[in-house]
Write a protein that binds this DNA or RNA. Structure first.
Length: 891
RNA sequence: AGGGAAUUAGCUCAGUUGGUAGAGCGCCACCCUUACAAGGUGGAUGUCGUCGGUUCGAAUCCGGCAUUCCCUACCA
């Protein structure tokens, strides 16, 4: 009777275990410790966000690392936090306000911010609850929010310092503008979508002639702001016009015809209208040629006074009316259908307008130099290495960073404008007077900083900077940053620049880049496609451990993952397997006397069975493999290592071997096997814990050999576990392999000949040498039980008439497995089976003969390889003749 | 257009320095063998995208081509 149910039920376990970990303080990092430090900063999720599959992957990787390091004796810090996510959060609250029939302008800044804080208090820990579901072992005592006082202090200090160095400045530039949000947005927040549009061809008359220049445009309404038309300097068609003017239709304005190599002669008509205030390329041309910049837009996206009779219209409406007016004036040459990509604001869904406005910028060219250098010289390495290129590519094409946003939710820019002398006071603390004229009449800049600005400081602002805290001393630089490749530039590069500038050291030693999670068809998960998978739902249905293990074993370095629910089910079954294996073991250990030495207790080697020594030997291999693969961040391989060890070695073979022993009578051998079983189980739980923490912690508590909490037990390594592993034996492992091979051969004969598994048969084993003879003899009972035999005779091949014969080649020994089939089966089936295996062997012999017949191979290939091939060839030939013989006897 | 990557079993993917192709899932057959049917045992399936080169030997190294994906920039 076992106290465990026959199915693992995660729902009863996970919440309870997590609470227990948290209350026991096992997640806490120590600012001072004799242990070596290991730190990871969690990429702060948006406070508006829900856990999505990307988080699940990102967090699982980090949690596996942190748990592994914690168990390996490190003082680990995994720092949690959330991001205020300026635009996203403000949008959410504004949407609520709209429903209530009001808006932020009516409320005023102060009231509005109170409202956002209320929202944050109510919903801001949603993501934290979900992180607990996933099992994240972060240090909750250190939870940080990007608008916390200390982070705000850090932000101000950085801003002021960069301003004083001249690296932050105010300027008028063209930026991506979201009209509904009335703010500048970053490139990241612009999504380009292909769209069917039109290409309007407009005729601009050349001043003083009858000639007309035809321009093509996708946005005809911007013609109101044209301040030039451009042609290629070497375009013979238009050479003579350069320097003349055209008369802009509708307005009658005279604008120059200029030459610029940016113009593609082959595209359209080869003449481009230039609207410097509403197009990024035109903006550059406008600067090069010193053109006039005519801004046509208000901040809400309607046309302004420069648009004359079109003033007040939205761009879409203006487009129609401008086209109509141009047609009336005879300036519309033709309309062509045309596909182009249009930028949309990812927050509001509106078309993004390039908009000329006064913004704050950060010049990054100077801080980029060391940030590039540290990656080039390997102070920080990317894993997989290929992302280094992407990073360096970005660092070479940097442009000044627009850091201001016309929002209210965020870090308000610490700049104050003097009402009397216009002087700008930039200060870490709120000034009471103008630093220039001492006037008390100051207005703070109404804008806030781009959310990425505070994110860029995250590795040190979360640790208490600008104070030189113990946390910083211990944990900065962090060991690894885990994130997706989509934000290498927006986040990774900027943290690097800020870390080097203000902490004079890299923020992380390693950057582990993972891919995105896609659906089973490889599509991006998105709300509009409706193919998003909710990880919380998966956790409810399959358990957090199953999800974690699926993610880890699907993880191909740096590549996107197609998520398969079938696979998840497979790993859910693995959890059940672990559960049941433990359930069995606990039953077998009912009367086990728990040794006082715990994990250090050793059986006498002389009492250990071959299987015992074999499983210890395999344990050594798995400890090596898992540690090495985790060290190299080969998560997929590490997961596969433990999976196949637990299922295909421990469960499939060891437990089967140990059954008769533990069910048998009390003896020293039985005690030894019980101890090996208990010790192996203990090590399995430790090895599995980083991947599947809940089920292992739950089961660990029920083991006979255990300590208080698995989460802080020692992760086994071949070095630390040397004493235990010394009980393993390579000899026993080889012996075990032979026994397994023989049993498999018997099962194969049964399976292929459709002999029901439960029919016990007679078998003759013919070893070719004394060692094999001895091994078979001492394992006869196991072979009979697991092969389900009635009798098992070990000796000569004897009479092969009407027998199935399978040659087994194992650990350098050869054995014939012989099963008399008379009366058991249709002999035809067996003939087919033998023919099939002869074909295979003949094919192999052919390959080898050809290879060894090649003089150059024998001459050039390594000796041991040639020798091995020769040996293989000869044994294949023996096997073939054996098969031929048994075939002859069958018919 | 530039940059990066991929192409291996029906599907998803491994395959570390070149030495006769692997896993999981799925599929087929048989089995409720007292831990587990979310299980057991056995089985089938691949000109490793294509063409050439280097080599005794190429899924692996080099080059061309094809297809697909991602990123960046977009021609108004």
């Amino acid at each position: 009777m076992s106290e465990l149910s026959d199915r693992y039920s995660h729902a009863e376990v996970e919440d309870r275990i997590y609470k227990w970990w948290e209350e026991s303080g096992h997640f806490k990092a120590e600012d001072r410790s004799t242990k070596p430090p290991f730190s990871i900063i969690l990429p702060p999720p948006n406070v508006t966000g829900f856990l999505h599959m990307g988080h699940a992957l990102d967090h699982t990787i980090q949690d596996v690392l942190v748990r592994w390091k914690r168990m390996s004796g490190f003082n680990t810090l995994w720092m949690p936090g959330t991001d205020h996510a300026g635009i996203a959060t403000q949008s959410v609250v504004e949407k609520e306000l709209r429903k209530e029939g009001t808006n932020r302008l009516e409320m005023g800044r102060e009231k509005f911010l109170e409202r956002v804080w209320d929202w944050k208090k109510q919903y801001g820990d949603r993501i934290y609850k979900q992180m607990r579901r996933l099992g994240d072992s972060v240090d909750w005592d250190r939870e940080v929010f990007t608008l916390d006082d200390n982070v705000s202090k850090a932000v101000r200090k950085v801003f002021v310092s960069l301003y004083k160095k001249g690296q932050i400045y105010k300027g008028t530039r063209l930026v991506n503008w979201s009209p509904p949000l009335e703010t500048a947005i970053s490139d990241l927040e612009v999504e380009y979508k292909e769209q069917k549009g039109s290409l309007w061809h407009l005729d601009y008359p050349v001043e003083g002639t009858d000639a007309k220049l035809t321009v093509a445009t996708t946005r005809p309404e911007t013609m109101l702001g044209d301040t030039a038309v451009a042609v290629h300097p070497e375009d013979d068609r238009y050479k003579d016009f350069i320097g003349k003017n055209v008369i802009l239709p509708l307005t009658g304005r005279k604008i120059p015809i200029i030459a610029d190599e940016y113009v593609e002669r082959e595209f359209g008509t080869g003449v481009v209208k230039i609207t410097p205030a509403h197009d990024f390329n035109d903006y550059e041309i406008g600067k090069r040629h010193d053109l006039e910049f005519i801004n046509l837009l208000n901040i809400d996206g309607t046309l302004n006074e420069n648009a004359a009779q079109f003033r007040g219209l939205k761009t879409q409406e203006a487009r129609k009316q401008v086209v109509k007016a141009l047609e009336d004036e005879g300036a519309l040459n033709k309309i062509e259908p045309y596909k182009n990509k249009v930028g949309y604001c990812s927050r509001s869904g509106a078309v993004v307008e390039p908009y000329l406005s006064e913004q704050w910028f950060m010049n990054v060219s100077e801080v980029a130099v060391p940030a590039r250098h540290v990656v080039e010289n390997g102070s920080t390495v990317f894993e997989p290495e290929q992302w280094t290129k992407t990073y360096l590519h970005w660092m070479n094409i940097l442009e000044d960073w627009c850091i201001s946003r016309q929002l209210w939710w965020g870090h308000r820019i610490p700049a104050w404008y003097c009402k009397s002398c216009q002087h700008v006071t930039v200060s870490e603390t709120d000034p009471t007077e103008c630093e220039s004229c001492k006037s008390k009449e100051l207005d703070q800049d109404s804008d806030v900083l781009d959310t990425w600005f505070s994110s860029a400081l995250w590795p040190f602002s979360t640790m208490g900077w600008p104070q030189e805290t113990e946390t910083l001393k211990t944990f900065y630089p962090t060991n690894v940053l885990v994130t997706g490749h989509d934000i290498i530039f927006f986040w990774v590069a900027r943290m690097m620049m800020m870390g080097l500038e203000f902490k004079e050291d890299v923020p992380f030693r390693k950057v582990y880049i993972h891919g995105l999670i896609r659906d089973s068809q490889g599509r991006k998960m998105s709300k509009s496609l409706g193919n998003s998978i909710d990880p919380v739902e998966l956790i409810e249905n399959y358990g957090a451990d199953s999800l974690r293990f699926t993610l880890m074993s699907s993880l191909a370095a740096g590549r996107d993952i197609k998520f398969s629910q079938q696979r998840l089910e497979g790993y859910r079954n693995f959890m059940n397997k672990i559960w049941n294996a433990t359930r069995f073991a606990l039953g077998a250990l009912k009367d086990f006397e728990v040794p006082a030495e715990g994990v250090n207790a050793l059986p006498s080697k002389s009492n250990m069975s071959v299987a015992d020594q074999w499983i210890v030997y395999k344990t050594q291999q798995i400890e090596e493999d898992v540690n090495r693969n985790l060290e190299q961040m080969n998560f997929q391989e590490a997961a596969q290592n433990v999976y196949s060890f637990v299922w295909h070695e421990f469960c499939d073979w060891y437990l089967e071997f140990v059954k008769p022993v533990v069910y048998g009578d009390a003896s020293d051998d039985r005690k030894a096997s019980q101890l090996v079983l208990a010790q192996t189980l203990n090590r399995i739980m430790r090895l599995l814990h980083p991947f599947i923490p809940f089920i292992t912690e739950e089961l660990y508590a029920k083991l006979p050999i255990k300590s208080e909490a698995l989460i802080v037990e020692e992760f086994p390594t071949p070095e630390k576990d040397a004493q235990w592993l010394s009980l393993g034996s390579e000899e026993a492992a080889k012996e075990m392999e032979m026994v397994k091979d023989v049993i498999s051969a018997i099962r194969n004969i049964k399976g292929e000949n459709r002999i029901k598994p439960n029919i016990e048969i007679d078998v003759r084993l013919a070893p070719f040498d004394d060692t094999a003879q001895k091994i078979l003899g001492s394992n006869k009972v196991e072979i009979m039980r697991l092969g389900r035999l009635k009798t098992c005779e070990i000796g000569e091949e004897g009479n092969l008439s009407k027998c199935a014969v399978t040659p087994v080649h194992s650990s350098g020994h050869q054995i014939s497995v012989i099963v008399p089939l008379e009366g058991l089966v249709d002999i035809e089936e067996e003939i087919k089976r033998i023919n099939k295996s002869m074909e295979k062997i003949q094919k192999d012999i052919g390959v080898l003969t050809k290879k060894l017949g090649n003089e150059n191979f024998v001459k050039n290939a390594p000796e041991d390889l040639v020798a091995a091939d020769k040996e293989l060839l000869s044994s294949l030939k023996t096997q073939l003749s054996g098969l031929q013989e048994s075939l002859n006897r069958l018919s």
